[in-house]
Nucleic acid binder design. Sequence first.
DNA 1: TTTTCTTTGATTTTCGAAATTTTGCGCGTA
DNA 2: TACGCGCAAAATTTCGAAAATCAAAGAAAA
Lengths: 226, 226
Amino acid sequence: MAAQDADIFDDMRHRLITGEFGYGTKLRAEKLRQDYNCSASTVREVLFRLSTVGLVEFQEQRGFRAPVQSVERQHELTHMRILLETEGACLSIRMGGVEWESRLTAAHHKLSHIETRVRSSGDLIPLLGLWSRAEQEFHETLIDACGSGLLKRTHAVIYEQFRQQLVSAETNYGYFPENIREHQAILDAALQRNEDLMRVCVNDHLARNLTRPLPRKAQPERSSAI
Amino acid sequence: MAAQDADIFDDMRHRLITGEFGYGTKLRAEKLRQDYNCSASTVREVLFRLSTVGLVEFQEQRGFRAPVQSVERQHELTHMRILLETEGACLSIRMGGVEWESRLTAAHHKLSHIETRVRSSGDLIPLLGLWSRAEQEFHETLIDACGSGLLKRTHAVIYEQFRQQLVSAETNYGYFPENIREHQAILDAALQRNEDLMRVCVNDHLARNLTRPLPRKAQPERSSAI
DNA sequence: TTTTCTTTGATTTTCGAAATTTTGCGCGTA
DNA sequence: TACGCGCAAAATTTCGAAAATCAAAGAAAA
């Protein structure tokens, strides 16, 4: 039987992303050991690997726990996504060819199809898994031609944590019409190869997750007082 | 005896950053187990934790190895540093107060002092450790007031990998005069609270690590050919 | 009653060996 | 010679228990 480690890893990741564990709760090794019928060391390893991608937090001598949910964390994740995704999308515009445009169009088509079904049925929950995967693929394809594996990996890590925040909060599921429009706008910006427009579109799309605005840009040459 | 895990972690990190292990070489658990006189599992854990911060690479069923050094990797790390550090510095300008300015000035003073000594003595090697730490502190202070722990942690991870690349390559140590000027320019931009200038300064400072230029910005509305 | 110390129970960390998987080498065959 | 097969050695992964550490409850002192 091959690599049970990997299976446990995937399952645990799924459980974490779906928000099965209360935020901030301790991940007791003994409990998980029973769940998966394996040894404590194996659980420990898996938890270490999950901490690699920010899905669990580790503290020396006091174990592992699911990250705490907070407005601050959501803001930081959103901010980072904006930073990485605008950069990645613009680089893709510069470096990607027709092949990239084609893949992005395909991903958008799939996503769009699901979103239409969601809107017409009026019920999101049954299609949540499908939609979630389709949106992830669209956003990952968007930055896929950026030419930097590091940027893509970093984005993937942030994206999962972001999703972990949202899924349980079940926020922003009332925004489907906006979502559809915004995804379309991003695709259009890509096909027009308009970087400035792309930055605006991605920013607008993601900034909806901010409950308060980002700090505004200060005036240059200003006094340095408080 | 307290937390030997942590000690081994720190020592291994140091060995990795100093480039003791050839790039791409396998990190044999057995060898390290003897070095530290501990069990295989402990070594394994430490290696997992080091992979958390990108200092070693892990592949299922085929162990750990030091990351391979390559021009591409160096470019990607540089690019990411530019992205994170310009953003962090500009946010610090917006959000940081006099207290931040003060800390940055202090960090620069320390760094500047060492750089002057290096230049006058003409020999970098004996001060390499000191200089390296001082530069790290300057760059971390630069983004310290940005308000996002996530941004700072991500930057720290990238920074260490970046340093890992440089130390052994021993590139760019002939650039001390430029370094001194550029660090000064960054400090000035911060005290003037000029974000645009800051972007230029940070970019210039880091872009020296690129052997070929980043892709230029495409013209909007261009045809999508090629 | 409040504070500090101690004991006890629970959790985390470390260990060394067994089980599993990969890797390298030799052998036979086309 | 080139190619594939299978065996043996080496490396990785998993295990269950022992050792070390932390946290909570209770006792003693102020």
